[in-house]
Design a protein around this nucleic acid. Structure first.
Lengths: 217, 217
DNA sequence: CCGCGCCTCCCTCCACTGATTGAGGTCCCC
DNA sequence: GGGGACCTCAATCAGTGGAGGGAGGCGCGG
């Protein structure tokens, strides 16, 4: 397994390299002191794994991660001092496969490196907790709203689904193959049942209840 | 640390108990063979941690997890055979703090138990990968839309945010302390800039672009 | 200094929306 | 056979929403 270590602090860079090199199946093939250099070396050396610090001069770790994931097949494991970092999501979106804090134990680091290189993902416990809280929160407001969804008839639900796509009554009528009058009936009824005023609120309700999900259209 | 082990298979139950009991600071205070029993014993014994299997008779692990989290302060670490389980999200929503596969290594299990009992969270690598993919996907459609958000002026963005709450122009005017005319201007302008037809589509755009997020209101 | 972008405000016009009322049809359960 | 819930369509009507066109003030960079 060939690894590239990117960190602006020489001490960490050396430490990580030494820890990894202590294992026969792992070789640190290069080091980089900033994001731009990390991208260059990653392209040049084509490593299996890049150990990436977030805070770095010239180009931060997130941008470097995005670049590397775009241009190489290397997996990126992000290391940072601060668990409170909002960079977590940015890093994951950029393509990072893992996110660890620098207080990680040596054997954990090695295990994580192997896992990530193998295509799995791994997060520091504190990060995992936040991620889970997010997932839970995203589904938390739902039960109450979701129940109210159940009060709607099948056709009203269909109609709401279309409303939540931003369609006009005429377009919905075409989509559901009924007259616009019918659509208006359904819309009126579902607004009344859900205690909403207009279709804009209906769209909000659809997203908040989970009937519509961002990133699915 | 006091642990309750819930699994319908005697072999696993005994194995887990033995592994955990091998450590001085961990004591298995009880075992349960199904979900209902797990809830009873959790309430009775008030353990620090519950090791919970998902597939169990009488009451499944998800329902038991929800019950236990509601009625006790115990942390729940879910163990399952199948990583493909859709139960992951249900379990996390139910309040589980961790999710491991049964092929976990012994020392990993012990470490996970300690972490979870300490309030952190931990997921099996395969599960983490799926969770991350989800987070990324949820933000994946965004870059294109997000860029277009940048074309809006500050005030237009404020206005869009209010539109995305389902407010009428009059309500937005009150909220932003301007006249309704001004709000109409902003709405007209932002609709034109974003190529949208009406406020319903604006709400959709707000959610899809990430300006509005389900579960934040 | 002048122009430009942004925020603010005003007016008119009209399509769309949603409320309301009513009614014909099917299907299912009592 | 007679409700009852649902889907369908219809007509009318008040209100909102959005387009289009102007206009004044403010701040910033050329």
């Amino acid at each position: 397994m060939r690894v590239l270590v990117a960190d602006d602090q020489d001490l960490f860079r050396g430490g990580f390299a030494m820890i990894l090199n202590a294992h026969d199946d792992i070789t640190v093939v290069g080091e980089a002191a900033d994001g731009a250099e990390a991208v260059e070396k990653a392209v040049e050396l084509d490593p299996d794994l890049v150990l990436m610090d977030i805070r770095m001069p010239r180009m931060d770790g997130v941008a470097a991660t995005a670049e590397i994931c775009r241009r190489t097949s290397a997996k990126v494991l992000v290391l940072t001092m601060y668990d409170i970092d909002d960079y977590v999501y940015d890093a994951l979106r950029a393509g990072a496969s893992g996110f660890l804090l620098k207080d990680v134990r040596r054997d954990d680091l090695v295990r994580a490196a192997r896992l990530v290189a193998a295509g799995e993902s791994l997060l520091a416990p504190a990060v995992t907790r936040r991620l889970i809280e997010d997932v839970v929160r995203r589904g938390a407001a739902r039960p109450a709203l979701r129940r109210r969804l159940g009060e709607l008839t099948d056709r009203e639900t269909d109609t709401l689904r279309q409303v939540a796509r931003g369609l006009s009554n005429a377009e919905i009528a075409a989509e559901l193959v009924v007259s616009e009058h019918t659509v208006k009936s359904h819309v009126s009824n579902l607004l009344a049942k859900l205690g909403l005023r207009d279709r804009a609120q209906a769209v909000v309700f659809a997203y908040e209840s989970g009937l519509a999900v961002a990133g699915s259209g």
